[in-house]
Amino acid sequence: MNSSQLLGITTFTYLFSTLLYVALFVFKVKKLGKFATCLTVIALLIQTLGIGLRWHESYQMGIGHAPLTNMYESVVFFAWTIIVMYLAIEWKFKNRIIGAFAVPFAFLAMAYASISNDATKGISPLVPALQSNWLIAHVITCFIGYAAFTVAAGLGLMYVIKDTGAGKRSSDDKTLLGSLPPLQQIEDITHKTMIFGFIWLTAGIITGAVWANSAWGTYWSWDPKETWSLITWFIYAITLHARHTRGWGGKRVAWLAIIGFFSVIFTYYGVNFILSGLHSYGSN
């Protein structure tokens, strides 16, 4: 058994837990709940094993490094963090419906990692610029932040859905929207997840700056990736201020959580694959 096989199994297991959580939400088969949680925990353990094994494999190849250094590895870690965060929320708030809005992201991330050509799965050695502990700190902190923002967006989506006329006041477990947690609680968890993400993204931008400074002597050079991470950071700073000092609540904050998520995805993915096209100097 090698790490790719374990991570492949993880992808499928996340797909099954996604289906279970969605079934739990749509068909209200309460009995599925425990099963969904169990399966997710098992998938998480398999994934943890897979990541650990990949780490071990890199050492066996004589190019040992933490499995956090390319697109594939970071997406896998991203999915892992989403699940850890979701399970923590499920445990703390005793609510499994949230799973239908969080676990799919982990599945999608894993599916993307395994089928996309952009994310090469091979373990490759580290070029000199990447040989830095600051890089590891940078990837870990950023992706914890990104995962938190992803969960926050899932919660934001849940809020927006619940907030449609029918769901608003309904707490009747038998209706679809009624089984969602009360708006107040969704908003509270969204906010908590967002501030959690904000502090990690802050740490991520800082460690990235320290890394850049130790490698090139410039902690900030306004390159598109840096700039987009700052834009993302601003979006969440704006959200916190609007909520805290201008009393923006519920729906607006939920939408901002969703917008923030798109900014996260763009920072992470778009900059590499969309802006890089604009910035290709190949013709010169």
Binding site: T227, I231, F234, I235, I238, H241, R246, L278
Partner: peptide, 30 residues
């Protein structure tokens, strides 16, 4: 005022987006 802060942060964000779409620091001829 915090309103000004929100407007400024939004403006800086929008400007930054432009700054990432238009390649920077090339020559005029480029």
């Amino acid at each position: 005022s915090v309103k000004l802060a929100l407007i400024t942060l939004c403006t800086i964000s929008l400007a930054s987006i432009i700054g990432t779409i238009i390649p920077q620091k090339e020559s005029l001829a480029w």
